[in-house]
Nucleic acid binder design. Sequence first.
DNA 1: CTTCATACCTAGAGTATCTAGGTATGAAAG
DNA 2: CTTTCATACCTAGATACTCTAGGTATGAAG
Lengths: 107, 107
Amino acid sequence: MKENWNTGNLDTLLLGILRQRAAHGYELIQKLKETSEAVFDLPEGTVYPSLHRLEKTGAISSSWDSSSGRRRRIYAITPNGRAALQSGKKAWAKYSHSVNMVLGMSS
Amino acid sequence: MKENWNTGNLDTLLLGILRQRAAHGYELIQKLKETSEAVFDLPEGTVYPSLHRLEKTGAISSSWDSSSGRRRRIYAITPNGRAALQSGKKAWAKYSHSVNMVLGMSS
DNA sequence: CTTCATACCTAGAGTATCTAGGTATGAAAG
DNA sequence: CTTTCATACCTAGATACTCTAGGTATGAAG
């Protein structure tokens, strides 16, 4: 992942959801909404391109599943993705600490 | 300010610096760098447009100062700006809490 | 007198998000 | 049975912010 939180942070959030278990795109949107208490209520036009980016860089891999009759693309995090998640978390820790400093909030 | 942290957050950061005392643009860049421990080391091409945005929306006001020989545009936060800062801080609190949830970090 | 830090500015490139459209299936309601 | 809604995928183009890369000008230092 990049070492700047300010851009492409959705990629890190998706890896954060996928770190526990694989999921398909639509499901990720819902989990992101649930886990964030509706703060991240993102349109598909935002999330799908992000997933395609992550797959292109090898952070996640996908496979089609049709067991439910309805076709789904299941995404799973790769070892590369876990490394990217770790550096993304570090970037977040630095970024959030700095914002707290600048805004004069408890860090 | 907008209720979404993800976009236009630099505006809130600048208000955070200006909440204590007025400052000119170049100085704000340095203070942002100092206060954030170099995490926010932003180019002028990023910061000046942000200041112009803030002035256009009435969150800050500016005046020219030539007392140092070198001309400087001094920015001060307005009452509107303080209100915008408050809502920006609320947006940040919600956003950062949600990121911590999604990434599984201590919130 | 040249170089560097200060101090301002903007146009255009780059990039991420969002809007708005499209397709298709399963379930529920009437 | 057929219409409607949630599921489930996709992309093209608009929007918006950041950054690059240029420009100008002054004061200080060497």
